[in-house]
Nucleic acid binder design. Structure first.
Length: 390
DNA sequence: GTTAATGATTTAAG
DNA sequence: CTTAAATCATTAAC
């Protein structure tokens, strides 16, 4: 059934506390070192510390060692300034230092410094308390030694007990610090939390491509690179954008209809030119007219056939394939225009007569043609694309 | 302050 | 690896 998405439901735990998924993401964030993840996993699993296992410092507890390593790596422990700034610099380099980034990073570093201060203060306090308590016990024992014999072994044992107790407290402190640092990292370094909308121009370029390739909105790697360069974003961002766009378009076509018409009209002139050129090329033997029958549903079921016709008609296979691909990519744009101009039904202004042309009943984009033949490997800036100075 | 829009991530499938 | 789908977290709009 339709699994209703509950947008507002999950937003209840926004704030300091992260949701389960968010925490998992934070732990699994690719910017996080794997060591941190394993450490946190262990912490999460066994909340009961292995207190009794911590005998002395000779057999270093692996968990404690990991905690120490992490704290050192994060710049919490270790040198007061050298380690901290090194970690901050590494983080800055990892997230691509920029002007607006420095502000957030200063904030991040301030918070990290705060954590470090608290950590050191607490650590010192614990150490001092441990020493005081040890001294206190020693004094007690010394006083008792007047009345009864106390062996050095016993004293040593007492000291050991005290140290174990305090080292367990230390461990808890380190644990808390680790978690605090991780939350801090997830809060400042998680890309999801630094989302910025693309520029209007970038969105326009992406939308133009999407709606002019609506029958097959899967840009090739080269096309993605081209789009990325034009939009000043990364290829991954282009992929993300198309992934989001496809699913959201499919989910609610009606909502995007206005946008679709807009971008179709925007590229209509170019498309018309391209098709005109293509038709002129194949005019000698192609009687087919685009609007053959099918007035209501303009689903263009045989766009692939059209392409193949052109290819077979044209003796030159190379040029033919290029023209065919170009036409295929422009057909969607044209369809919108035709849909708009042909729909004289004033009643709804063409709102509801928009049919999910290219979508299967299942909801997937049918591959109009074999992708290998559609994607033109050499997508130059202008194949048929005539002068835009119009 | 609430809600829609949006970019990024996770999960699962191929 | 890519992709669809779900979800998260932020931003913009109301």
């Amino acid at each position: 059934g339709p699994a209703g998405r509950e947008g507002g439901g999950g937003a209840g735990d926004t704030g300091i506390l992260l949701g389960e998924g968010a925490m998992k993401h934070a732990l699994n964030c690719h910017r996080m070192k794997p060591a941190l993840f394993s450490v946190l996993c262990e912490i999460k699993e066994k909340t009961g510390l292995s207190i009794r296992g911590a005998q002395e410092e000779d057999p270093p507890d692996p968990q404690l060692m990991r905690l120490d390593n992490m704290l050192l790596a994060e710049g919490v422990s270790g040198p007061e300034k050298g380690g901290g700034s090194a970690a901050a610099a590494a983080a800055a380099a990892a997230s691509g230092g920029s002007s607006d980034n420095s502000i957030e990073h200063s904030d991040y570093r301030a918070k990290l410094t705060q954590i470090r201060q608290i950590y050191h203060t607490e650590l010192e306090k614990y150490e001092q308390a441990c020493n005081e308590f040890t001294t206190h016990v020693m004094n007690l024992l010394r006083e008792q030694s007047r009345t009864r014999p106390i062996s050095p072994k016993e004293i040593e044992r007492m000291v050991g007990i005290i140290h174990r107790k305090f080292s367990s407290i230390q461990m808890q402190l380190k644990q808390s610090t680790c978690e605090a640092v991780m939350i801090l990292r997830s809060r400042f370094l998680d890309a999801r939390r630094k989302r910025r909308n693309f520029s209007k121009q970038a969105t326009e370029i992406l939308n133009e491509y999407f709606y002019s390739h609506l029958s097959n909105p899967y840009p090739s790697e080269e096309a993605k690179e081209e789009l990325a360069k034009k939009c000043s974003i990364t290829v991954s961002q282009v992929s993300n954008w198309f992934g989001n766009k496809r699913i959201r378009y499919k989910k609610n076509i009606g909502k995007f209809q206005e946008e679709a018409n807009l971008y179709a009209a925007k590229t209509a002139v170019t498309a018309a030119h391209a098709v005109a050129a293509a038709v002129q090329n194949n005019q000698t033997n192609s009687p087919t007219t685009p609007n053959s029958g099918s007035s209501g549903s303009f689903n263009l079921p045989n766009s692939g056939d059209m392409f193949m016709n052109m290819q077979s008609l044209n003796g030159d296979s190379y040029q033919g394939s290029q023209v065919g691909a170009n036409v295929q990519s422009q057909v969607d744009t044209l369809r919108h225009v035709i849909n708009q101009t042909g729909g004289y039904n004033d009643g709804l202004g063409g709102n509801s007569l928009y049919s999910p042309h290219n979508l299967n009943a299942n909801g997937g984009w049918q591959d109009a043609t074999t992708p290998s033949s559609v994607t033109s490997p050499t997508e130059g800036p202008g194949s048929v694309h005539s002068d835009t100075s119009n």
